[in-house]
């Protein structure tokens, strides 16, 4: 994973498939979502992106009940 210094977002390399994914959220925003402190609207593209990263085991929710 790389989080860009301009806070524009983070990019991930899925080592298993070789696929590269991006999400337009900063590292701190992502960890807020993963820990359940921020709840995203289900319809937003950010939420969809996070869910797909979780599905691919690239991101892991810190408290799985809340997500």
């Amino acid at each position: 994973m790389h989080s860009f210094s301009d806070q524009s977002g983070c990019v991930f390399l899925d080592i298993h498939s070789g696929e590269t994914l991006s999400i337009l959220m900063s590292e701190s925003e992502i960890s807020k979502v993963l820990s359940g402190n921020t709840v995203l609207d289900k319809e937003t593209s950010r939420n969809i992106a996070i869910q797909s990263l979780i599905q691919k085991n690239i991101l892991v929710p810190i408290d799985s009940k809340k997500i």
């Binding site: 524009s8 977002g9 337009l24």
Partner: peptide
């Protein structure tokens, strides 16, 4: 261009 977008375009 923000860096995330620029990176993805390079990829």
């Amino acid at each position: 261009l923000d860096k995330t977008q620029a990176f993805m375009q390079l990829v």
